[in-house]
């Protein structure tokens, strides 16, 4: 394992970071969703999308080793992964928009709501960062 890791390049590490950050995003999403009265209607769908995105990313890493960082399979997997993460963060954003508008106006003193809001923001931020890292890694030469 250590040898394997030593042989990996920037592309690998960026993908690994993207996966880890996506996992953090799942945790924040779950915390946000778990508060009584603030569950997200499409939580299950979002969760599945992110998990699939992570899976595609891991698969992409495998095929990078076999076929190079820019093979069609790797390109398709990374594109699908980013689209799924985009779907996830967009869904969270849409689900929390009304909460945000309330917190910034008539419900400013709702500390529980603010907690839910911040966790949602962290989840969105995590999924966005993960997408960006995958995108950045796709510009890098990588192994051929």
């Amino acid at each position: 394992m250590t040898n394997y890791l030593k042989k990996q390049n920037t592309t690998f590490w960026l993908s690994a970071a993207a996966i880890l950050i996506a996992v953090v995003g799942i945790v924040m999403l779950t915390l946000s969703n778990g508060v009584k009265g603030y569950s997200i209607n499409s939580y299950a769908l979002i969760l599945v999308a992110v998990i699939v995105a992570i899976g595609l990313n891991i698969t992409g890493t495998y095929f990078t080793d076999k076929q190079g960082a820019h093979s069609p399979i790797v390109a398709a997997l990374s594109l699908a992964s980013v689209l799924l993460l985009g779907f996830a963060l967009g869904n969270i954003l849409l689900n929390r928009l009304v909460l945000a508008s309330a917190l910034f106006t008539y419900d400013a003193v709702n500390t529980i709501g603010w907690g839910v809001f911040y966790n949602s923001i962290f989840a969105i931020g995590a999924f966005l960062t993960s997408s960006i890292l995958i995108s950045v890694s796709s510009f890098i030469k990588g192994k051929n």
Binding site: A69, H70, A75, S78, L79, V82, L83, G86, F87, L89, G90, L93, L94, L128, S131, I132, I134, S135, V136, S138, F139, I140, K141
Partner: peptide
């Protein structure tokens, strides 16, 4: 590499615009 990368960047932007 360039087009691979750009396709991902534009996909992020597309998701944002759709949202």
């Amino acid at each position: 590499q360039l087009w691979h990368g750009l396709s991902l960047v534009f996909s992020i932007l597309l998701c944002f615009c759709l949202t």
